[in-house]
Each structure stands twice: as structure tokens, then as C-alpha cells.
Simulated scan of single mutants.
Amino acid sequence: MQMLYNSDSYIVVQFDERNADAWAGTNLQRGGFEIVDKFARKEIFIEGALAASFELGVQALFDEGRSSEDELDDFIEGYAAMGQTSVQMH
């Protein structure tokens, strides 16, 4: 788990899990991104093709030189809007 982004509006955490199953002789990789909307107090975990699309979109912003906090927040907002899970304090 690695925090990638933390603004006034959003937190983005990357999860990269590798599970080695010695019995089955497999090495599975599963990961994704958790996006927390601080104002809406909602979160979403994206993985698979959606996570790959998110990662490519963020990289494109940096490649285009559009990596200000406002531009990143605008991009993240499109994914955060899908969040339905309320953030719970433990």
C-alpha cells in the first residue's frame, strides 16, 4: 500500500498485492487504487481494466505537463463520483 496523492479534496492509495500460493505453484498479482473523496466522505476501490485506465490517464496528464492539483483533482473527480461506500472511522 502506498499513498500516491493527497489534496484537500482527494486521497489516492495504490494497492499492489502479490500472493504466492506454494501449494498450487502460482504467483497471483492483484492490485488497484482506492480513491477517497474527502468532501463527499465516499470511497471507491478500482481494479483491473478500470485501474489501468486510471493509471494511464494520470500518466497522460503528467506527460502533457498538466499536473497541477486542480487538474489532477478534476481528473480524479470522474472516478471518485462512482464511489458509493461511505468512509467509516475505525
Rank of each mutant, 00 (worst) to 15 (best):
28 L>W: 05
29 Q>T: 08
29 Q>P: 03
31 G>L: 04
31 G>R: 03
31 G>H: 05
31 G>Y: 04
32 G>H: 00
32 G>N: 01
32 G>V: 02
33 F>G: 04
34 E>D: 12
35 I>M: 08
35 I>D: 13
36 V>S: 14
37 D>R: 04
37 D>H: 05
37 D>T: 04
38 K>H: 00
39 F>P: 13
40 A>G: 00
42 K>L: 15
43 E>Y: 15
43 E>A: 15
44 I>H: 04
44 I>R: 02
45 F>G: 10
46 I>L: 12
46 I>G: 06
46 I>N: 04
47 E>V: 15
48 G>F: 14
48 G>K: 13
50 L>Q: 14
50 L>K: 14
50 L>E: 15
50 L>I: 14
50 L>W: 13
52 A>R: 12
52 A>G: 15
52 A>N: 14
52 A>K: 10
52 A>W: 09
53 S>W: 10
55 E>K: 12
55 E>S: 14
56 L>V: 13
57 G>E: 09
57 G>H: 06
57 G>P: 02
58 V>W: 09
58 V>P: 00
59 Q>H: 11
61 L>S: 10
61 L>D: 03
61 L>W: 10
61 L>G: 05
62 F>Y: 07
62 F>A: 09
62 F>C: 03
63 D>F: 12
63 D>R: 13
65 G>F: 05
65 G>C: 03
65 G>L: 06
66 R>F: 11
66 R>Q: 11
67 S>A: 11
68 S>R: 03
68 S>E: 07
69 E>H: 02
70 D>R: 11
71 E>M: 05
71 E>A: 07
71 E>P: 01
72 L>T: 04
72 L>W: 04
72 L>P: 01
73 D>M: 00
74 D>R: 07
74 D>F: 07
75 F>H: 00
76 I>M: 01
77 E>T: 07
77 E>N: 07
77 E>V: 08
77 E>H: 06
78 G>R: 00
80 A>R: 02
80 A>Y: 02
80 A>D: 01
81 A>F: 06
81 A>T: 10
81 A>K: 09
82 M>T: 07
83 G>R: 00
83 G>S: 01
83 G>K: 00
83 G>M: 01
84 Q>A: 11
85 T>C: 09
85 T>W: 07
85 T>A: 12
86 S>H: 08
86 S>R: 10
86 S>Y: 10
86 S>F: 10
87 V>H: 08
88 Q>Y: 08
88 Q>G: 09
88 Q>V: 08
89 M>A: 08
